[in-house]
Amino acid sequence: MQFFWAFVIGGVICVIGQLLIDLTSYKFTPAHVLVTFVSAGVVISALGLYQPLVNLAGAGATVPLTGFGHLLAQGAINGVKQHGLLGAFSGGISAAAAGITAAVVFGYLAALTFRPRG
């Protein structure tokens, strides 16, 4: 069942992104879409509404970039819980550190290894 919900919820979140692109007649570039989804993920998660979605859909909610925002928001909030105000500075990025480092390292290596095809 979790596979079903991962597919459906993940698909629906992407459809929202597609609507943003189509309804703004392509003024929304990939960068706009990604920025919007990260920020939206943070806001929804801070309001406590994203965790239920993760419980239901698993990767369907964590793989889209809203999930990245969820990770950042929960990291910052848990940071505050543990370390007070300083946690707002350290919590977000530490929670998302694996994803960010993976993207930087693999991105760097790919850039050195491959030549764009054109």
Partner: peptide
């Protein structure tokens, strides 16, 4: 040249992106 113009004016070639029908 498609590749030189695209990367100067729009997006990197390998960036996943959809183009509208007017493009």
């Amino acid at each position: 040249h498609y590749c030189t113009a695209e990367r100067q004016y729009r997006f990197p070639i390998e960036l996943g992106n959809q183009r509208p029908m007017t493009a």
